[in-house]
C-alpha cells in the first residue's frame, strides 16, 4: 500500500470539491478499495471519507418509489421492510452477495463501484488493460471461466461482479450524483456502468469528482420477484450467472443477467420476448455473444437459469 493522506468530508459538495485534487478518491465502507490498495492495484494519494455525510436514509419519493441514500449499508437496505415488500428482487440479490460481515460495511454507492474480480486484474505481475491501460489482457487466452461472454472487447473481458446492481437494473433505478459545482444529475442505471471498448480502465460514466448521493427506485412493479444466483459453492462466491427477474401474472416482465458482462445485462427485446419463454428471451439477450472456450457454457446456463426462474414463478 502506498502512503496516502486522508480527510473526512462533512457535506456532499465539500466532498466533491475535496476529491478534485489529483489522485484523490472517495472512500465509504472500503470493502473493495482497501483490498485493492493493499495490492497496489489502486494507489490513491488522498482519500476523502464520505462516511459522515448523513446519506444513510431510505425515504419514499413523491413518485411512489424509494430513495436510497448512498451510504445505506447492504444489510440495512436488504432488511428494510419497504424493500422486502415491494422490491424483493433487490433484497434477494443483496443477501446473495458477499458475507454478513461485508454487507454490514458495504454501502449502496460503494457496491455500485465494486471493481471486477478478474484474477488477472488482481495479479500485478500480469498485463491488464483495466489496471494498467495499454499493457494487454492476460485473461484473453488465459483462465477465464468466470469472465464475460457479451459486451466485452478485445481489450477486456472482465465482468461487473456484483449482485445488487443487477436487481437495480431490472428495477430501472437511477443513480443520483452531485459534482463540485453543486450540480446534480440522475443517471439511469442502464447508462451507469460502461462497456470496455478500448478504455476498460474506466468502469462507469461518473466524472472525476462526481459523488453518488443516492439511488432512486421507481414505483413498485408488482409481480413476482426472483433472484437466482448460480455458483460453484452455495455461498460466498461470485456468480457464474445470475438472473434478476420481475414477472407478472400474464407472463410479461423484466429480466437482467449478472456475471456475464461488464455491466448488468438487459435489453428491451428480451423483456418483450419473456412471454414466449426462456429460449426466446435468452436468444435476444445473448445475440452477438463472444464467449471463450472456457466460459461458453454461460450462454446455455443463463437460458436454463432463466427457465428455472420462469418455472418457479409459474408454480408459485
Amino acid at each position: 500500500m502506498k502512503p496516502f493522506s486522508y480527510e473526512r468530508a462533512t457535506t456532499p459538495a465539500e466532498a466533491a470539491a475535496a476529491v478534485q485534487r489529483p489522485g484523490a478518491k472517495f472512500i465509504a465502507g472500503g470493502t473493495n478499495l482497501l483490498d485493492l490498495m493493499k495490492l497496489e492495484i489502486e494507489t490513491p494519494q488522498h482519500l476523502v471519507d464520505v462516511g459522515g455525510l448523513n446519506l444513510d436514509r431510505i425515504e419514499p419519493t413523491p413518485e411512489g418509489g424509494l430513495r436510497i441514500g448512498a451510504l445505506v449499508t447492504n444489510t440495512d437496505l436488504a432488511s428494510d421492510k419497504r424493500v422486502r415488500k415491494d422490491y424483493g428482487v433487490l433484497c434477494r440479490a443483496i443477501v446473495a452477495g458477499a458475507s454478513g460481515q461485508l454487507r454490514n460495511k458495504a454501502t449502496t454507492a460503494g457496491n455500485l463501484l465494486q471493481r471486477t474480480r478478474c484474477p488477472y486484474f488482481y495479479d500485478t505481475n500480469q498485463p491488464c488493460n483495466k489496471r494498467k491501460p495499454g499493457s494487454g489482457c492476460a485473461a484473453i487466452g488465459g483462465v477465464n471461466r468466470q469472465l464475460g461472454v457479451i459486451g466485452t472487447s478485445d481489450a477486456c473481458i472482465a465482468t461487473y461482479p456484483g449482485d445488487m446492481a443487477v436487481a437495480m437494473r431490472v428495477l430501472d433505478a437511477a443513480v443520483e450524483t452531485v459534482n463540485a459545482a453543486g450540480a446534480t444529475r440522475a443517471i439511469p442505471i442502464a447508462n451507469f456502468h460502461r462497456l470496455p471498448g478500448s478504455t476498460p480502465h474506466i468502469d462507469t460514466t461518473l466524472q472525476h469528482g462526481e459523488l453518488i448521493t443516492g439511488v432512486t427506485l421507481p414505483r413498485p412493479l408488482g409481480g413476482t420477484h426472483v433472484y437466482l444466483k448460480v455458483r460453484d459453492r452455495a455461498s460466498y462466491a461470485f456468480a457464474l450467472v445470475s438472473i434478476a427477474a420481475v414477472i407478472q401474472r400474464d407472463g410479461t416482465g423484466h429480466v437482467a443477467i449478472g456475471g456475464v458482462a461488464p455491466k448488468p445485462w438487459r435489453n428491451e427485446a428480451a423483456d418483450a420476448a419473456l412471454p414466449q419463454g426462456a429460449k426466446a428471451a435468452a436468444s435476444r439477450l445473448f445475440a452477438g455473444a463472444r464467449p471463450t472456450p472456457e466460459n461458453a457454457f454461460k450462454v446455455p446456463l443463463a437460458e436454463r437459469a432463466l427457465a428455472a426462474v420462469l418455472a418457479e414463478v409459474k408454480a408459485a
Partner: peptide, 20 residues
C-alpha cells in the same frame, strides 16, 4: 502460458462453506 496458479486466493480457490 505464464506458468502459475491464477486463482491464488481464497476468493478464487473455493473450498466448501457451511452452506455446502
Amino acid at each position: 502460458r505464464f506458468g502459475f496458479f491464477v486463482n491464488h486466493d481464497l476468493a478464487g480457490y473455493e473450498v466448501p462453506v457451511h452452506a455446502d
